[in-house]
Design a protein around this nucleic acid. Structure first.
Lengths: 207, 207
DNA sequence: CGTCTATTTGAATGTACTCAAAAGCGGTGG
DNA sequence: CCACCGCTTTTGAGTACATTCAAATAGACG
């Protein structure tokens, strides 16, 4: 069974026919590292499920600053729901941090799917519900935790992502600069020196 | 037609029977100012639609600091989706800022409703979708805007709420202290003195 | 009126930022 | 294979914005 179908089956159960129908509307796509999936100004036509690789969603503000909104790895959906639904041009960019493989559903296919297999309405409701809950948590964590704690929480929660994504992008996700993150990491070194040797040749910085 | 039904009819259309069935599962509730709707530790049994009044959702951190997550006025849903769905005890508090009237749906009633009138699955999917999109925007605005701009954006977007809610709670919603908000407001005074007298008669700006 | 809460203001502190530059790492082409 | 180039990470110094603590003023409500 594909990664996507097994993901779906955690929430709803499909007959073989329903599963086959669903698979028939999917579009597959490969992306090379650094390629864009979506660029600012596009009208977003698909929602994307990641079967392989890692992507990031970010926005660029007036000052040219990038703000990372989301990382997506295997088993995650990504895209821009707002543009996907409204058809408005997106303000977001999504690009591949690694070579990627995606399964995509178009708006039309999804609407048809909702009518033909209403269970999918439930599947996506639950997905979005979970996404909503976790975004809410993120708002709270930005408001109530200092940056260092947010970083610790991040590596706790997404240890896999932390390994695959450059620090300055994690910094952006956390809402701080790369420099600040670097200093935070340095201060964690002193705090718990045991954990510092995890990767390999990483010596504690030394003045 | 009730406020709730007219809200629903913006997204799905119901037959009179479906509407009647829906209304039959609703529970009405009144709340006096300062009363709790939900308290930390509760297992949340209902989602609540506000037909009258104004409520706030907040969390208290280890240091005893309150963090306002949401305000809800007429036409909004409020509650704790996470606890509502999982049954876990909530970490949130919701209380009434004014005397309130609510319509409530229980988890069981909602599940039954989904089965009997699957269109509701769509209604709530769309609701949550919108909530998700706007929370995402909030994350971005916290990350990329200074507090003063966030405040300006807030009063633009929710002029009604701004009138009804004490400043220190707006400050909390914005993720800043009441003192900081007070200084921000003072600085807006100098910046655009014309707007400061909005309520009474408009004098030509004059330093 | 008096009490309680909300708002404002001041002064000192702190956290994260900007600007700038050095060091580290990785990929590419000669 | 190595030298070079570009990008990432680190470090330093000075700055800005928001915080804390404290106290005064202003409003609301009984």
């Amino acid at each position: 069974m594909t990664l996507l179908l097994s993901h779906i089956s955690k929430f709803i159960s499909l007959t073989p026919e329903e599963a086959a129908y669903f698979e028939s509307v999917l579009i597959r796509k490969k992306l090379r590292k650094r390629q864009y999936l979506i660029q600012e100004g596009d009208s977003v036509k698909y929602e994307h499920f990641v079967t392989k690789g890692c992507l990031r969603t970010y926005e660029i503000d007036e000052k040219g600053q990038e703000h990372v909104i989301q990382f997506a790895v295997e088993g995650w959906w990504t895209g821009d729901l707002h543009s996907f639904i409204s058809g408005d041009p997106t303000t977001l960019n999504i690009d591949a941090l690694e070579d990627c493989e995606l399964e995509m559903v178009s708006r039309q296919a999804l609407e048809d799917l909702y009518l033909r297999v209403p269970k999918f309405e439930r599947y996506f409701r639950i997905l979005i519900q979970n996404a909503f809950i976790s975004t809410n948590r993120r708002v709270l964590s930005i408001m109530k935790m200092p940056a260092a704690d947010r970083y610790k929480a991040f590596i706790e929660r997404y240890p896999d992502i932390e390994q695959r994504v450059p620090n300055h992008q994690i910094a952006s996700y956390l809402g701080i600069t790369a420099q600040s993150l670097s200093r935070i990491r340095a201060s964690l070194w002193n705090e718990k020196p045991e954990q510092s040797v995890r990767i390999s040749h990483a010596d504690p910085p030394h003045p």
